[in-house]
């Protein structure tokens, strides 16, 4: 097989599913997913706090798993489904986790909130994740909140879990 090495300045075409919609991107090879989301796609909800995977403000879902968008090349996302905070609320209705954050005042400045929420949603959707408080705290520890709203975030996650479980039960009862 003949190898063809693309030059460094070649733009790459990347096709992905972004918040449920197919998107085709033209990006430079070194483009970071976080910068592409924010600067190119104007999705500013995903925040940059450290740019090195140390704060979690950039957490998005790639094929349903929470990842740091700052440590991922856009070019690596070919064919993947990416969900950002903007894709969470459906038809203007807050996601139960967002609703719980509002009720529990699970934030102060709000800058880490999209990342906290994306991590919390992934955690709650993970059927194998442990559910005790200590496990939740550990699982969420990749999301720093310098304002320190940790207690309220944990309360919001517990509340959202109850809400989602009762929703699931109700749906289960329906024929």
């Amino acid at each position: 097989m003949q190898m063809s090495l693309s030059p460094p300045d070649a733009t790459l075409t990347v096709r992905l599913i972004l918040n449920g919609e197919p998107v085709t991107l033209e990006v430079p090879p070194q483009a970071i997913l976080l910068d592409v989301l924010r600067d190119q796609l104007h999705l500013g909800g995903t925040k940059k706090g450290c740019d090195h995977g140390q704060c979690g403000a950039c957490t998005v879902h790639v094929d349903g798993r929470a990842v740091n968008a700052c440590l991922r090349l856009a070019a690596m996302c070919e064919g993947q489904a990416i969900t950002t905070i903007e894709g969470l609320a459906e038809k203007g209705q807050l996601h139960p986790v967002q609703e719980a954050f509002l009720v529990h005042d699970a934030y102060q400045c709000g800058y880490c909130s999209p990342g906290q929420i994306m991590s919390a949603v992934a955690l709650l959707e993970d059927p194998e994740a442990a559910t005790d408080d200590a496990a939740v705290r550990d699982a969420m520890s990749g999301n720093l909140c310098r304002c320190g709203a940790y207690r309220n975030i944990q309360a919001a996650i517990a509340d959202a879990r109850r809400h989602l479980e009762s929703n699931a039960q109700q749906q289960g009862r329906q024929p």
Partner: peptide
């Protein structure tokens, strides 16, 4: 981060 090229390897041999 300085510019670099990007390639996807589709087999061990190409990698």
């Amino acid at each position: 981060m300085k510019p670099f090229a990007f390639s996807r390897a589709d087999s061990l041999e190409t990698a």
